[in-house]
Amino acid sequence: MNTYKIKLKEKEFGKTLRDILISRKINPEYIILKEKNKFIPISKTYKKEVELEVLEVIKM
């Protein structure tokens, strides 16, 4: 299972993580997100810079 980190950019503030992932060509069907070692839903939005961990849970 592959894992990597992504950082949100200012232009992505206010958008759902689902929309952000899609615009970054990351298919949400393959991954689960963590913030500070805690699982988070892709319906979440942010207004500040944040680093998220992407867990590729499905073979790609």
């Binding site: 299972m1 069907e29 393959y30 689960i32 699982f39 867990l55 849970v57 499905i58 073979k59």
Partner: peptide, 29 residues
């Protein structure tokens, strides 16, 4: 499939996270 992975991770169910070294399924992929 994603929900099975989520259920395993949320409930600390152990599972093997690597693919079989022989795994090849170009068509299925």
């Amino acid at each position: 499939e994603k929900e099975i992975a989520a259920y395993a991770l949320y409930n600390d169910i152990p599972f093997y996270k690597e693919d079989c070294p022989f795994y090849k399924a170009a068509k299925r992929n």
